[in-house]
Design a protein around this nucleic acid. Structure first.
Lengths: 167, 167
DNA sequence: GGACTATAGACGTTTCAACAACTATTGTCT
DNA sequence: AGACAATAGTTGTTGAAACGTCTATAGTCC
């Protein structure tokens, strides 16, 4: 009687279904992140920086206060100042203080930043295809919905990531 | 005629379904990670370190070579040496070189490490409940399956994270 | 069995992230 | 108007991650 991998054994590595889900989430994120990072390192960018540029692009030619930008990033960024320092050094963004309120620093994407995004756009698209191109549209939609449901209680009510109840 | 949020508008923030899925994955991981980190900082641990201790626990009272441990962690860790330095300083693990092969360093969890895990176990369980306790078992299983499918092509064939085809 | 290669880890350095403390500016309250 | 509080960033510091290089040991092949 050799022991076969029966489905009742399946969860032995995990303490609970919640844990299994979380560790799978972590692992999956980590694996897919590798694909994305491969692309960005070639341009000396972090995913987070790319994300910031993308956000600034959406308001271009307008601007955005430093902190507002930080709050809208996917992953929380407590050190916007230095991140913007690096982007500004490379002329990817511009900063200015306006006389109306000299506390806030308004940030805008610079021409070089727009050009970089342009240059990257097709590669990023291909990267996402390499990451998840093997999944069907139906699977992806289902995954997205479940992920939203999973994090929803952890999002603030008004956040762009928060989704309201269906009913 | 006020514009309602019709479902056709839903994807405007994303370039593709793959991108939407990946960014949702990232965001969800980031949000849930916050919950876990809250717990671990109280014990001056990183999630990665906790993970390493858990792995060592599974082989206790046996040992594991440094690199093997690094490869089995959820997220890749290129600097096991110093991570183990820190754990050893706190007497959570022990290391030794054996005469059979003086290249490899065998790592074992130490009594203090076992005790720490014991101390943490219920809190970790509660943490996972706080993270995902609002999801039904069915949803969690579905999520797990989709996550596995999503990362599967990015796992090595023999990895503990790789799942074979169903058929 | 000596040269060559492969393996396992350690170490030096640079860069980033996180946290706290600090500065400058504006708003509020009496 | 002056004192106090709140807002928006900045800066210092410490710890950890990433990367490549370096050392020690073991296996392989004339």
């Amino acid at each position: 009687m050799t022991a076969t991998r029966s489905s009742t054994v399946r969860h032995t590595r995990f303490d609970s279904l919640q844990q299994e889900a979380y560790l799978n989430l972590w692992r999956t994120y980590d694996r897919l992140k590798v694909v994305e990072d491969e692309l960005f390192v070639k341009y000396d960018l972090s995913a987070q920086q790319y994300n910031a540029l993308r956000l600034l692009e959406t308001v271009h030619p307008g601007t955005m206060p430093t902190l507002a930008l930080g709050q809208r990033l996917i992953s929380r960024a407590p050190d916007m100042t230095r991140m913007l320092d690096r982007l500004e050094e490379r002329s990817l963004v511009q900063r200015e203080r306006r006389p109306e309120n000299r506390r806030v620093v308004e940030v805008a994407i610079a021409p070089a930043g727009l050009q970089l995004l342009e240059e990257l756009s097709s590669q990023v698209r291909e990267g996402h295809k390499r990451q998840l191109g093997h999944m069907t549209a139906h699977e992806l939609k289902q995954l997205i919905e479940l992920l939203q449901a999973a994090r929803n209680p952890h999002e603030e009510e008004g956040s762009r990531w928060h989704s309201k109840e269906k009913s």
